[in-house]
Structures are given as C-alpha cells and as structure tokens.
Write a protein that binds this DNA or RNA. Structure first.
Lengths: 127, 127
DNA sequence: TATAAAGCTTCTAGTAACTGGAGGGTCAAT
DNA sequence: ATTGACCCTCCAGTTACTAGAAGCTTTATA
C-alpha cells in the first residue's frame, strides 16, 4: 500500500510517517518504480506501535528501544518494564512540579480581585 | 553594571540575558564605548520578573504581556488575572492528561512480571 | 611590561518532534 | 486533454534557549 493508506491504517499524518522513515524509526517496506514509498502490514503495525508509544509520551529514543524489543523474540520483560518505569517516573516528577505550580498560582489568582484597579498580588509576587 | 553582574543579580545565565535582549523582551540599558551591554537596577528587576514568570511556565509571549502590565500604572488587575487564569487552566489540563497516562502506565507496569521471559502486557498493549 | 585568564561581542548551529509550504513529477477519472 | 489527487524532496519554522567558534578588551599576575 502507499503512504496515504498506511497513514489511514496507522492514524498518523503522512508527513509524520515520512519523518519516521527519514530518521530510520520505521522505514518504508520498499519503493515503487516511480519512487513512491510502499508499506506492508508489518510496517503498519510498527507505525501503530510507535503512535501508541508516543501517546504515552515515550520519546523517540525510548520508542526506538521499545520497538527493538517488540521485534525481539529473546527479549526479557524486565527490559520493557525498566523503560516503562522510567517513563512513569518522568510523569510523576512532572506531576509533582505542576502541582506545586498549580497551588501557588491558584492561590495568587484567588487573591487577585480582578477589577479595574492596578493593585494585584500576582504582580506583587512576580515583581 | 555589565551583563555578568546582571546575571548574578537576576539569577539568569548570561546567554539567556543576551537572548532576551535579542528578542526584545528585556533590552540592555545601554552600551559602553567598546560595545559591552550595561544594565541598571530597573533592567535587573525586569529580568527577575521574567525569571519568575518563566518559572511559573508562562510562555515568552505571556511573559511579554505580563511585563507590559508590570510597568503600566493604568493596568487593571483583571488583565493580569486573565493571563494567570489561562496559565492555570493550561496547568490543570496538563495535569489531567498526565494523570490519565500515569494510571494506565502504572497498571501496565504493575502487571508486568519484569523477569527473563519475553511475555509482557506492556508490549501487548502497544503492539 | 608581557602575557595569560577572564569577560565581552557576534554569528551559526543544535536541541525535540514534527509541520507547512514550495516546486515539481505521477496517476486516475472525466 | 486536463483536472484533481496523489507522490516526491528540500527548506524553513516552531519553543526557548544552549554550545561553540572566532575575535575583541580588560584585568590580574609574574
């Protein structure tokens, strides 16, 4: 199938699929005589895998590792788990950061009158 | 004072201060005869303001707006509050996204044995 | 006074992961 | 024959810096 069919099946933009081919993440299966990329079902599966991995926020580099394990029959689930745990930690770290910010900003927003006068605790805090 | 003194006082890297000058966010107060940037206390205050704003995750563009209001005596606190509320919403939206991801990934990680065998629910989910 | 270290300048390029657009070839249908 | 929908490559832009090169000036030391 050509790239737009692969795009439909994988639910990825054509541009993104070309980009993944460029960086070597998921290469096209082949090319037609006129230079059009072709993809088979296996390649589409890899594209779907990449989309899901990216949706979880795994970086391209992490996705590359996962993809390698995906097609490695001799993989250990421990390797997969380690990568996932790393990502989980990233998420939790980010959540903590955001929660600190949210609390502080929420307090400031609540204490700001939000009227026509210039006086404002948000500005006091920043300045 | 020169740029490295401004950097110390504002707790920003020299490179970042130059960058802010380049994009017109916080311009240097002047230049010495040999072309060195100079900063006065007012400029340093603006740099500190920018640092705090960025620490809250306000974008450069939002920071620009806040900075304009900072030196606007006729500002209304409503304008400031609106920008802060927008940022607060961004934070909350991100938090919700992360929480969904965290739950899902956490479940997968917990259900993965993490041993020498290849079988792995994380891979099952992605593939 | 010579010199070396530190500090300043500008300019370019790289980071992450795409996305948009230009310019141009190809293919299917009317 | 032509229109519209594909496909291709290459370049630039996005965010907010950061690193490094090449080359001044200033300051401190021997």
């Amino acid at each position: 199938m050509n790239i737009s069919d692969a795009a439909k099946k994988s639910e990825l933009p054509v541009k993104t699929i070309r980009y993944y081919a460029d960086i070597g993440l998921v290469k096209e299966t082949g090319r037609t005589a006129n230079g059009y990329r072709t993809y088979d079902e296996t390649a589409v599966k890899r594209l779907i895998f990449v989309r899901r991995s990216r949706e979880f926020g795994f970086s391209i580099s992490q996705t590359e590792e996962l993809l390698a394990l995906y097609s490695d029959e001799k993989r250990s689930s421990a390797e997969v788990k380690a990568i996932a745990q790393k990502r989980l930690l990233e998420i939790e770290t980010k959540q903590k950061e955001l929660e600190i910010l949210r609390k502080e900003l929420s307090n400031l927003v609540q204490s700001c009158h939000g009227d026509d006068r210039p006086n404002c605790p948000i500005m006091d805090y920043l300045g």
